[in-house]
Computed example of a mutant assay.
Amino acid sequence: MSFDNQVFVWLHLLVSLLLQPVTWGLFGLLALAVMDIGITLGERLGGLARWRRLALPEIERRARKRLDRADLIARVGPMLGLMGTLIPLGPGLAALGEGNVQILSVAMRVAFDTTVLGLLAGVIGFALGRLRRRWYDELLDELEAEGNQHATSLAQ
């Protein structure tokens, strides 16, 4: 029994040490999402028009890189939010068992706050990814149509 208790003490210590890195990760993802919103606005306000001067492989490389970043934000944000939800619930429920409602209320507030931050990051990443996919597909379709039109005019 003593070994089992010690394992659980170490497990709890390890998990509780994760809350701060998870929270910083959420803040980092939100900062990345805000930066990505700015880049997306720049693309919409003329940046994509400048992409037309680039070679097709370069356009695809840039598009893939930006879509990967939006997908990372959309997927990792909710995961970190869930971790930030579950980590403080253990000590909060233990405090409730001891009758300390104050610690439980702090733990619940942290749990809900990290959930909201994670979902916010996920929503931003998802929305940016969807918008960009549509814009990039339209740009590539237009460039392909122009290329076909150019090839047709050369053939005549």
Results as ranks from 00 to 15, higher is better:
I59V: 12
A63R: 03
E58W: 00
L120E: 03
Y136I: 15
P88A: 08
Q102D: 12
R69E: 00
L96D: 01
L80G: 12
S105N: 06
G81E: 03
I87Y: 08
Q102G: 13
V106N: 10
L54A: 08
L54Q: 07
W135A: 14
L93F: 13
A121W: 04
I124H: 03
G122H: 10
T114D: 00
A127E: 15
D71S: 07
M79T: 13
L120V: 13
I124R: 01
L104V: 12
L119T: 04
R132N: 13
E60N: 09
L89V: 09
P78Q: 04
L72Y: 08
L139A: 06
L139I: 05
L56P: 00
L72K: 01
V110H: 14
V116W: 00
A94G: 00
I87T: 10
L93D: 06
G125A: 02
I87Q: 08
D71L: 05
P78E: 03
L86Q: 05
T85N: 12
V110Q: 15
A74E: 07
L82E: 07
L54N: 02
A94L: 06
E60Y: 07
G92F: 08
R130K: 15
T85S: 11
L67D: 02
T114K: 00
V110S: 15
L93N: 07
I103A: 12
L117A: 10
P88C: 08
A74F: 08
T114C: 01
A107Q: 10
A70K: 03
L72N: 06
G122F: 12
G97W: 12
V106R: 13
A70F: 02
G118V: 00
M79E: 11
G92C: 04
P91S: 00
I87P: 11
G118A: 01
G122S: 11
R61L: 15
G122C: 10
G125I: 05
D71G: 05
G125F: 06
I124S: 03
Y136L: 15
G129Q: 15
M79H: 13
T115H: 03
D113R: 00
P88R: 08
L89P: 06
Q102I: 15
I103C: 03
L104N: 12
G99D: 09
G90W: 01
E98F: 10
S105L: 11
L96W: 06
L128A: 14
V76G: 01
L96N: 02
N100F: 13
L104S: 11
Q102K: 14
L131R: 13
P91V: 01
I73D: 07
R61T: 12
D68C: 03
R75N: 14
A63I: 02
P88E: 04
G122W: 11
R75M: 11
T115P: 04
L89H: 10
L82I: 10
G92I: 06
R61W: 11
G129E: 14
T115F: 04
R75L: 09
